[in-house]
Structures are given as structure tokens and as C-alpha cells.
Amino acid sequence: MSKDLVIKDLQISVQGNPIIKGLNLAVKQGEIHALMGPNGSGKSTLANGLMGHPLYDIDSGEVIFNGVDVLELEPNERAKLGLFLAFQYPTAIPGVSLANFLRLAVSAVRGQSGNGSGEDHLIPMREFRRELRDKMKQLGVDDSFARRYLNDGFSGGEKKRAEILQLAMLEPKIAILDETDSGLDIDAVRIVGESVNKLVGPELGVLIITHYPRLLDYIRPQFVHILLDGRIVESGGWELTQMLETEGYDPIREKHGIKEE
């Protein structure tokens, strides 16, 4: 059975300010969606709200993932169901190597970390190392990555590649990429785009949240949505990105009577 992420009339506020104002969207496993919008339209709020960030308040609506309402669940429980967020600004965890962190995370999402502690609950070291090596090779990530402290002193491009490596290891059903192209030069965008492309397939649904269409040159979405003022105002296909490329957001704002913020 395919695993769907269904968002119904979702409203999210931050410190009392409504940001997402009634959003509807369905992403199926195997589909690639792009959610495009200008700064301040609510893109990152949606991403964080879907993953369960404590500072984002869900005011109403439903998020059903694989038949379960995830809004009551902790972020780690959402991850275990197969939801993944690639962060716009991944946080550094000094002193924790990427490999040690990933081994615990992979064990957790695969249900091997039931009681939390001890070697027994972790996937066997040899198995993990082999898998990590394979995935790093597939994504062209340098071996030294595994030993470095998580996001600590990483360049912008390295952080995004580390996010994609985590995506590859955790094998989610639905992945949300929050502005994965932001702050990257054109070569880095290409590398990240090609990496994601290696991971897409019938098992993975992707929601790419982005400001610019350039990442979409590498990961071609089947569905494109435009987010303005906390709502999806247009949905379509590839032609929407072409239109944005040439005309920008102004014609759409005008059409829907939304003032630039």
C-alpha cells in the first residue's frame, strides 16, 4: 500500500502570528512535488510544523500520514513512521560524529532502539558501516565525513550533503526538502540535486520547498504548487516553474489580490 501524506486545511502560527492559513496538499510515495513561494510566504513554517517543531503552533487542520494523524506525535515518532525533513539550517552537534549519530538514528527508525540504551538495541556495527560506506559512495561523499562532528564546521554545501546522506540512510517514505538549494553556489546545487535524484523512486515521495526553480532543473517535479500568504494559490505541472522563471511572482499576486509583504 502506498504511503500518503495528506494535509487538510492546516493552520499554523508562530508566536501568535498566523502564518499558514488553511493549506491543503497530498503527497504520495513515488511522487515529486515542488512547493514554491517567495520569502515570507510560509514555506519553512510548513516544513517545521509538519515535522513537529515545538515553537510552531498548529491551530487547526489535520496531517494524516499513512492513515495516522501525526499532529499529536513527537518528532521522533513522525520520523519512525517515515517522515523526513532536510533542514534549511542544520544544527551543529559538537563532539558527536556523523557515524555515531546516524547509527542511533537508523536503529531508532528501524525499530531497533526500543529501550533506548545499550549495544543490543543498535544495528550491528559491521552491517551499519557497510551500508554507510555504500551510501556515501553512491552519493559521492568523502569517507572522512563519517568521522566528523555532525554539521560542526561544515560548509553550507557540506551541511546539505550531510542532510541528503541522512535521507539516504533513514529511507523515509516522504521527504521534505526545506530550501535545500539556499546558500549554495551553482555547482553545489547541481551536486545536491543529482544526489537527491539518485534516491527518488517508487518508494520515496518528495516535497521540495524552494524559492528559486534552479534545484528543479536537477529534480524534475510532476506537481508544482505556488504558496502565497500561507495558502496554495496555484497547482499545476512543470509549466508553472517556467512561468515563474520568466514573470516572477507578481502576476500571481495580482491575480489573487495579495499584496507583496
Binding site: 515545538p54 518528532p75 533542514f87 544544527t91 552537534i93 558527536v96 549519530f101 538514528a105 533506548g116
Partner: peptide, 26 residues
């Protein structure tokens, strides 16, 4: 942000805090 980041990867709050502390004393 650190807790949310680690929890979004499947770690419980306790596992996440422990990992941050262990990193601190590394």
C-alpha cells in the same frame, strides 16, 4: 533546535539529550 534536529531523525528526547551531553564531554 539541537533537540528538535536529533528528534526529527528518530531519537527520543532522552537519547537526544544524552547524545548532546556526550558530545559536550567528548
Amino acid at each position: 533546535e539541537q533537540l528538535f534536529y536529533l528528534m526529527s531523525r528518530g531519537l527520543s528526547e532522552e537519547e537526544a539529550s544524552t547524545m548532546i551531553v556526550n558530545g559536550f564531554i567528548e
